[in-house]
Structures are given as structure tokens and as C-alpha cells.
Amino acid sequence: MNKPVYLDYAATTPVDPSVAEEMTKYLTLDGVFGNPASRSHMYGWQAEAAVEQARRQVAQLIGADPREIVWTSGATESDNLAIKGAVGGWERPHIITSLIEHKAVLDTCKWLEQRGVEVTWLQPQGDGRILPDQVENALQGNTVLVSLMLVNNELGCVTDVAAIGALLRDRGVLFHVDAAQAAGKLPLNVAELSVDLMSLSGHKVYGPKGVGALYVRRSPDVRIEAQIHGGGHERGMRSGTLPTHQIVGMGKAFALAGDLLEEEMGSLEQLRADFLAQLADLDGVTLNGSAQHRVPGIVNLSFDRVEAESLMLGLRELAVSSGSACASATMEPSFVLRGIGLNDEQAHRALRFSFGRFTSSDDVKFASKHIIDVVSRLRAVR
């Protein structure tokens, strides 16, 4: 049986072959396998040099100083560290977020709310975006942090983070942005965005799973409380032996993403246009999320008179998703789609298609034809 065409790049990306090749140099005795914290011999020095090189590569993609990059196990840990770390030490803090953030943000904020932290939950616009005025109107005298994602992982819509960051900077409120779905898909510059904390993931950018980073602004220093203790690694913000091979992989992946950014944005835009054009003859198809303010690689569609679960079962030759991978264990309709105003029935009819570096025009052509055939067949038997 042939493998299905992979159209779930928003869930995870395959490791780029050049990244995998680089990672193998940091595992065995004949490579650089040492502990980066071992500073009394060459093995440790070489590992530390590799880690610092990767730190520079990640920093370069987002316009940061390498000293502002803190290694984590992934964007989920980065979100936890940023949010919990920012409110620690405040007596009665208030934070602002939205109803359609990644579960790593939602569950962290709910956990804090149960422990006395006041949380304002913003309702997104119908296109999935949060507007600067919404944030401004929610600010209070005790607001410590605002946490919003740059690119929504289910809809692909882009929030105007720069405008929100500017108004928060003027008021001295910390701004955390989950950019896991934005890195390598959009030009990023933390200074231009006025961001204080930014979460990043390796496996969303053709790097390995199990590694991520948190940007923590310096000048002036943003102070966050560590959530993992035991050695004071990463400037005291995140203890633990660093996985050199994974970090090297993330660094290489981010460097590659920077080199290919303009080219890939153009190719993904073309794939998206072709995909939607080829589905144009199929009636009852609705685009969820902003048609204008979005990244090209994510397309969320609802299909009238067809449930997504039945459609996915029929689309055996495609690997797609009915929502975020973080919520795929439940059959509940997508909280993101409900958050932008879809009812349960409408949300149950939606699928997310996401393209990436290794998606070809033939893949898109095959996928659109397969979708039309399966949807038409399912509608005929209703």
C-alpha cells in the first residue's frame, strides 16, 4: 500500500534530510557527544560550541540576540515557562489571552486561574483574529501579561501582533507570543513586533521533535521565574542537561528556514491557490478563518452535508486533520471553530489541510480530485 499524501504539516513536519544528517554528528563516540555543561575537557567544549552556534541560528531567524534564546523541550514547555514564569511573584496578577489559543496556553491559564490569577478570555473575530482594541479595552491596572499566538494552528490566520505589542510596550505590560506556527512561514523580528517572550518549536520547522526555545527579551531584562530547577542552566531559567543533537537539529532547521523563507512563501501560496481553484467546482465548501490575514500553508474548510469524521475515513489516501493535533484525542468539535462562531454541526464538518516544503503540485492535484470524489459519494448516500 502506498503511503497517503501528507497534508498535515501544521501538526508536524518531517525532519529535513540535511538536518537529520547534521544531527548524526552529535550522538556517538566518534562525534560530538559530550555534555555542553562539562567545561573541563574538549568533549564538553565542542558540545557547548555546537549549542551556541545553534542558539545564534535560532536567534537570527527572529532578529534576536543569541543570549535571549532559552532552550526548552518544545513550544508547550516554552508557553508554560513564559506564562507561569511571568506571573510568579505577583500578588494579584491579571493576564489576558484568547479563547482559541493553543492548549498549552489555554490549559496553563486555566491552571493559574484556579490558583487565584485573574484571566480575561478574549473572543476572537469571526475570521479568527484578535484586534488591538480588544486587548486595549481588557487592560487593567494589575495586568501583568498578554499571551496571544501569531498564527493560529487550525485556521492559519495572522493576528496583528506588532500593533498589540506597541500598545503594550507603552503601558509596560509583558507580551508573550506563541510563534510555533509562524517561524519559517513569515518574516519575524522580535524588536519590530515589540514582543517580550516568544515560544518556538523545532518540529514545526523541519527540525526534530522534543526541542524548542523561548525568546526572553533583554535590555531591559525580562525576569521570569524558572519552572524546572536543578543546576541553573540557561541563565537560571531552565535547568537540565541540554540535548546537543536536538539543539543542533533545531539550529540547522531554523538556518535553512531563513534561507528558504521567501521561496517557500511563494511556492506555498501557489499550492494554496491551486488547491482552492481545483475545489471551486465543489459546492457547499466554506473557508474558515481570514482569507486575507493568513499564512499560505494552512487551509481550513467546512463541507456541507458531510461530517469530517466520515470524510476523513473516506480520504484514506490523504493524511489530514479535523483540528489541532493537541486536541485530536477527543471527538469534541474544534474549540477554535466554535470560538469563531461556528455551531457544533458546522465545526464537525471541517477539515484542516496544511502544505509544506515537500508538497508537490501533483500532491495538490491528487488531493483535490480525491476530496471531490469522496465528498460527492458521501453526499449521494445521505
Rank of each mutant, 00 (worst) to 15 (best):
L139C: 03
G141Q: 13
N142T: 14
N142D: 15
V144F: 08
V144E: 00
V146I: 09
V146K: 06
S147A: 15
S147T: 13
L148Q: 08
M149D: 14
M149S: 15
M149F: 12
M149T: 15
L150G: 06
L150I: 09
V151P: 14
N153F: 04
E154V: 15
G156F: 09
C157E: 11
C157T: 11
T159A: 05
T159F: 06
D160W: 04
D160E: 10
V161G: 01
V161A: 03
V161Q: 02
A162W: 02
A162S: 12
I164P: 05
I164D: 06
G165F: 05
L167G: 06
L168E: 05
R169K: 15
D170F: 09
R171P: 12
G172V: 05
V173W: 04
L174T: 11
F175M: 13
V177G: 00
D178K: 05
A179W: 09
A180C: 08
Q181N: 14
A182V: 02
A182T: 02
V190F: 03
A191V: 13
L193E: 07
L197D: 03
M198D: 10
L200R: 07
L200E: 10
S201R: 09
G202D: 06
G202P: 10
K204L: 12
G207L: 00
G207R: 08
G207I: 00
P208R: 05
P208M: 02
G210A: 03
V211G: 02
A213C: 08
Y215W: 04
Y215M: 03
V216M: 01
V216G: 00
R218N: 13
S219E: 15
S219V: 10
P220A: 07
P220R: 11
D221W: 09
D221Q: 13
V222E: 01
R223D: 11
I224W: 11
Q227C: 12
I228H: 12
G230E: 05
G231L: 03
G231Y: 03
G232Y: 04
G232L: 03
H233R: 11
H233Q: 15
H233V: 05
H233M: 10
G236R: 02
M237E: 05
R238Q: 12
T241V: 14
L242F: 00
P243E: 08
P243V: 12
H245R: 10
Q246N: 13
I247E: 09
V248Q: 07
G249I: 00
M250V: 01
K252R: 15
F254M: 09
L261H: 08
L261M: 10
